[in-house]
Simulated assay, not measured.
Amino acid sequence: MTFDRARRATLPFFAFIRHGETDWNAEGRMQGRKDIPLNDKGRGQAARNGEALKALLERDGIDLGGLDFVASPLSRTRETMEILRERLGLDPAAYRLDERLVEIGFGLWEGRTMEELASEDAERAAARRADKWGFLPPDGESYAMLSERIGGWLSTLDRPSVIVAHGGVMRVLRGLLIDMPTREIPVLDVPQDKVFLWRDGRDGWV
């Protein structure tokens, strides 16, 4: 399903959090669908985001009971969500999972760094540098394909929500919400220590 950009102004409030750091993030490895756990820094980032979100919700009088909490099924997103909910004073386990929010798949490249791939698979690495949006890793998924998947999910968003997912998902989500060339979307900054907000047709961070 393609997301209707005309609907952006009517989307409900939501907060999007990228999972905290993992060792593979720190090493620059393509993580994709591999189920890599948070490291201690990542747990601290999740706690920080929970505190920041709590302060925002309290300041703006947003009722926790009216929020839908949903996460990607990978363990790094589940642990981030559980830390977040604990900081909000909620049952850590009382949230739902959505397979559509899983990270972009890097296929056979998962676990590799770009430096390794530049040596081991130079032709494909060069093709990715030339067109990161459309490039399809072996047995993987392109950013263009991911955008279609996340656009379908976004089309179903019908209540205020707190979402925990991944860096690639955050990139294409922002690309769907904010007009920009597709070449810019795969290189957007995706902080693990900030909360992305969408409210009243505008984006922000906390």
Score class of each variant (00 low, 15 high):
184 E>P: 08
36 I>T: 06
77 T>W: 01
68 D>P: 05
190 V>Y: 04
48 R>K: 11
178 I>H: 11
58 E>T: 08
179 D>W: 06
121 D>M: 15
53 L>R: 02
35 D>N: 00
147 S>C: 09
177 L>Y: 14
156 T>K: 08
97 L>F: 05
28 G>P: 15
13 F>T: 10
188 L>W: 06
7 R>K: 12
41 K>L: 05
12 P>L: 11
115 E>A: 11
144 A>D: 02
140 G>F: 14
63 D>M: 04
63 D>I: 02
162 V>Y: 12
1 M>Y: 08
27 E>Q: 11
74 L>T: 01
35 D>F: 00
18 R>C: 00
57 L>R: 04
157 L>H: 14
164 V>K: 03
134 G>Y: 08
105 G>Q: 10
186 P>D: 13
189 D>N: 13
166 H>I: 10
204 G>K: 07
179 D>M: 09
174 R>D: 06
94 A>Q: 07
73 P>T: 03
80 T>C: 03
164 V>A: 06
46 A>Q: 11
184 E>Y: 13
199 R>H: 14
47 A>W: 10
21 E>L: 12
29 R>A: 11
90 L>I: 07
101 L>G: 10
97 L>R: 00
196 F>G: 01
78 R>T: 02
177 L>M: 06
83 I>E: 02
124 R>F: 12
193 D>P: 00
53 L>W: 03
192 Q>N: 06
42 G>D: 04
22 T>R: 10
11 L>F: 13
93 A>W: 02
63 D>L: 05
13 F>V: 05
169 V>I: 09
147 S>D: 03
133 W>E: 03
40 D>Y: 05
39 N>R: 08
186 P>E: 06
141 E>H: 09
17 I>C: 03
163 I>A: 14
99 E>S: 13
1 M>D: 04
116 E>L: 08
31 Q>V: 13
101 L>A: 12
26 A>Q: 14
72 S>C: 14
185 I>W: 15
152 G>W: 14
107 G>R: 08
127 A>C: 08
174 R>V: 11
2 T>Y: 06
82 E>W: 01
96 R>A: 07
131 D>K: 02
67 L>R: 01
45 Q>P: 01
102 V>K: 11
15 A>D: 00
166 H>D: 06
87 R>G: 07
104 I>A: 14
148 E>W: 01
9 A>L: 15
186 P>T: 08
66 G>K: 03
103 E>M: 07
171 R>S: 15
82 E>V: 02
163 I>V: 11
147 S>K: 12
7 R>L: 13
195 V>Y: 00
15 A>H: 00
110 E>L: 10
187 V>Q: 13
56 L>K: 04
46 A>D: 06
51 E>L: 05
120 E>A: 15
9 A>M: 13
91 D>W: 13
31 Q>G: 06
64 L>W: 03
156 T>S: 14
4 D>R: 09
5 R>M: 09
205 W>F: 14
8 R>T: 15
177 L>N: 11
131 D>H: 03
56 L>T: 01
52 A>E: 02
52 A>Y: 03
33 R>H: 07
60 D>H: 01
99 E>L: 04
123 E>V: 13
122 A>W: 13
183 R>D: 09
170 M>Q: 03
65 G>F: 02
69 F>N: 07
166 H>R: 07
65 G>M: 02
152 G>E: 12
181 P>E: 10
195 V>I: 01
155 S>I: 15
